[in-house]
Nucleic acid binder design. Structure first.
Lengths: 186, 186
DNA sequence: ACCTGAACACCGTTCAAGT
DNA sequence: ACCTGAACACCGTTCAAGT
């Protein structure tokens, strides 16, 4: 279930899939700011075809995030009833961080997209975002989290954390600092 | 003391000053990712002249930061002996955040530059960075700060915090979250 | 209905010619 | 020694022509 279920010609559907795989490949090698021109080339289609399927780079990110967003959504709903209330949020946010940094440079775009309701990333990740918000609400109700942060803010903040240039992953100890900062420590 | 003290022709020196003022003006209006072409135009010089004085956009940021870095350096040295140990770091980091966000989009570049010893920003801000490191060391020694963060990491993290799109300033409550996360709270 | 690739736009960067 | 602006490169984006 990696592409949208719209009715379309077989070649169009195939091009979508090929483009998405090419994008993952190119992004993995060159980072998510790589020229989309290269993606079209590697997919073996014309530039116009790429822009038809993915009107903007953000649409590519949204497509890339589709599967992880589904997993993260499910995981958030599971964690809602997990026994140890204090560790639910850290655990989920680490998974989110891993998913958002799967391709170098993507997490900032994902975090920004989640803060903008008009973005394709926000559309794709809406269920995940809602489930995380529920998780955050419960943590807040139980007094584990400072009350002045919203779900969107947390996701945007984590997405913005500086990266290790070598791996593209969030560098240590930024996530730990943020998790500590979110805790209520009276 | 806004431009380097190298010996140069009067017109060159004047062009440097005009370009820097133009950059501030353009950055204030269009953000720090604005085309440098516009800066050259507004300064009334050719593109080549701009690149002669500022080989890269980072060099412009370094020049823009020169004065604030001097102030921040002085302030850090003052605060080293301030009475209330727990508030020294927050106070200074708020000032740093204000300076780095003076032009929309600049703080990320400044934070990245400070983490890269080869960058012109790192060169310009070296005294400031050293003074801040001393401040951080003392806070660490007094047990106010978690021991696993370096000065560079703190400055890069603060520079990376998400911005309010309207003002370009660090949005609330990100800096508060980070400051809380840096504290030792046993 | 979709694809292709030429064409245009934008802007960073260089450099030959000028003063 | 420095300035200028034409020229090139790169790449996002569009669109007329084709299938």
């Amino acid at each position: 279930m990696t592409s949208p279920a719209k009715r379309q010609r077989a070649d169009a559907r195939r091009n979508y899939d090929v483009l998405l795989e090419a994008a993952k490949d190119v992004f993995a090698r060159l980072g998510t700011d790589a020229p989309l021109e290269i993606v079209a080339q590697e997919a073996g289609v014309g530039r116009g075809t790429l822009y038809r399927h993915f009107p903007s780079r953000e649409h590519v990110f949204a497509a890339i995030m589709r599967d992880s967003a589904e997993l993260l959504d499910a995981r958030a709903r599971e964690l809602l009833d997990a026994p140890d209330g204090a560790t639910r949020l850290p655990e989920w946010l680490r998974l989110y961080d891993r998913a958002a940094t799967e391709y170098p440079g993507m997490s900032g775009h994902v975090g920004d997209g989640l803060a903008d309701d008009g973005s394709p990333v926000a559309a794709t990740c809406a269920p995940m975002k809602a489930s995380f918000a529920a998780l955050l609400d419960r943590a807040r109700a139980e007094g584990h989290v400072r009350p002045d942060v919203t779900a969107t803010q947390v996701l945007t903040l984590v997405g913005a954390l500086p990266k290790d240039p070598a791996t593209g992953r969030t560098a240590e100890p930024y996530l730990d600092v943020v998790l500590a900062g979110l805790r209520i420590t009276t």
